[in-house]
Design a protein around this nucleic acid. Structure first.
Lengths: 108, 108
DNA sequence: TCAATACTTAAGTATTTGCTTGACAATCCA
DNA sequence: TGGATTGTCAAGCAAATACTTAAGTATTGA
């Protein structure tokens, strides 16, 4: 378990693409096959597979092949890492803003 | 202000680079000038400025120039958008996130 | 005034990314 | 069996990215 290398780079980079976020949202409804994931998208199946590889390597998606069908599902671990990173920094960022005071209040 | 379009793509992409995250972490201690931000990094000042432009365009950082010094600070808005996106989806992914607790305990 | 400071801008380059097409499995089922 | 389904793999390409260096501009302060 502890040997998992969660690469925060890969996670945020994976989230930084609209197609991949669309895949994640679809997977939020439950496991889906590759071709059904690709169906509503205006790109080739191969491109979808490449996006899925990025998502899987980042720990945001899990896949398993059964027969000729590869079924994809949300992997909570990558998402957890992303949320934790943001959450950990929220407090220190809030403190930074406190120090800032009304310095930047000129912004309307 | 409300007219500002927060581009979730830009935000996550900005977070997907280790140098930019390092800049954000430094800014968590409070506002810093460009050259002081660049100081500990092994890249040119121009490269740092380019990273800062990405951060500013994504809404994660604000900058203001006073005299010849540009002072950079955290902008909470971009962070809020990122956390909101993850948070909004957390519910639909709740089942998958059952293992979140385990992960948070082992991640350092 | 004039040199140092603190960026700023532009142009160039190597690598990565997001996609394509086309050929190739592997599996299912009529 | 054999054709349709479902995915895999590899090569290639255009655009974006993350830098670089070099030459500016604007400000400060002795």
């Amino acid at each position: 378990m502890a040997s998992r290398k969660f690469d925060i780079d890969r996670i945020f980079q994976a989230l930084g693409d609209p197609t991949r976020r669309a895949l994640l949202e679809k997977l939020g409804d439950g496991p889906v096959s590759v071709s059904r994931l690709a169906e509503p998208l205006a790109i080739s199946l191969a491109a979808v597979v490449q996006h899925l590889q990025v998502l899987e390597e980042s720990g945001l998606v899990k896949t398993a092949k059964s027969g000729r069908v590869r079924t994809c599902s949300i992997d909570p671990d990558g998402l957890a890492v992303a949320m934790q990173w943001l959450g950990d920094r929220r407090s220190s960022w809030a403190r930074a803003l406190d120090r800032l005071g009304d310095l930047l209040e000129e912004e309307t």
